[in-house]
Amino acid sequence: MSELPQLIVDGLVSGAVLAIAAVGVSLVYGILHLVNFAHGDYLTFGAYAGLGVTALGLSMVVATVVAVAATAALAVGLQLVLWGPVRRRRAGLLSSFITAIGLALVLRHAIFLVVGAGSRAYPVDQFSVERLGPVRVSISQLIAISLSIVAIAVIGVLLARTSIGRSMRAFADNPELAAVAGVDVGRIVLATWLVAGALAGLAGELQGLIQGAFDPNMGWNLLLPIFAAVVLGTIGNAYGALLGGFVLGLVMELSTWSVLGGGIPASYKYVVAFLALILMLLVRPQGLLGRRARAL
C-alpha cells in the first residue's frame, strides 16, 4: 500500500521542477508579452552547463551555481542581441513567437553540435535511495525538491517584498504607468530575463538529475508540459504557474496509479497532462487563479 504515497512524492518532485520552469515562462509572458518557445532549450543549456562543470571534477554544488549563472547570462545576452532589437522594430506577437521557435531550433542544434547526441548523466549515484516511511526517495529527487523549494521561496520573496519585484509586477500590470512612476523599463526587462534564465538553468539541471540520463532534446520535450502548467495556473500569473506545475506533476504521476483501472502506462503521462489542460480550458478557461484581477 505504499504505491500512492510514492506516486505523490514523485509527482511533487517532477511538479516542483515544472513549476520553477513555468514561473520563468509566465514572468516573461506577463512582463514582456513574449511567448518564449525557446525556454525549454534554456533548460537544456543549463543542464549541460552544469554537466560541463562536473566533467571538470567539480562538485554538484558548483555545477548548480554555474548552471544558474550561465543560463541567466544566456537569457540576458539574448535580450541584448536578439529580443531588444526585435522589440525596437516593433515586432508583433506572432513575429516574436516565430522568432522564438527559430531561436529554440538554433539553440538545440548548437547544443547538439557541441555535446553530441548521446545521453549523459550527472555523477550522482542514481541507485542511492533514502527510505522515508512508506516512500523511497532518491538522492537526486531530494536535491531537486529541496532546491526547488528554496527557489520558489526566493522568487516569492523577490516578487512580493523587494523593490525590483514590485516594479516587475507594476510593469506587468501597466507598463506605461510604470515608466511614468519612475521605473526604469530597460532595467525591469533585464531583471525579468535574469530571473527567468536563472530559474531555467536550475530547472534544467534538476530535470537532468531526476531523469537520470538526458540528451539535447530534454528541454524541448519538456516545453509543452511547461506551457501547460503556465496555462493551467492562469497565463501571466507567476503564482499560478507554480501551482500549475505542481498540479500537473501530480496529475501525471497519479495517472499511473494501478487502482485507477490498472493505471495508464507511464509513457502516456504527458497525454494525461494535456487532457487535464483541455479539461481545465473547457471548465475554467481563465486558469486556476484567473478570477482575480490580473496580478502576477
Partner: peptide, 27 residues
C-alpha cells in the same frame, strides 16, 4: 512627476505598493 488622466493607478497592486512604487526613483 506626472499624473496621467486615466489608468493612473496599478489596479492589481495594493495601495501601499502603489505608494512605495512611486518612490522607485528615490528609494
Amino acid at each position: 512627476n506626472y499624473v496621467p488622466q486615466t489608468d493612473n493607478v496599478f489596479a492589481a497592486l495594493s495601495v501601499r505598493e502603489n505608494l512605495l512604487l512611486g518612490a522607485t526613483a528615490r528609494p
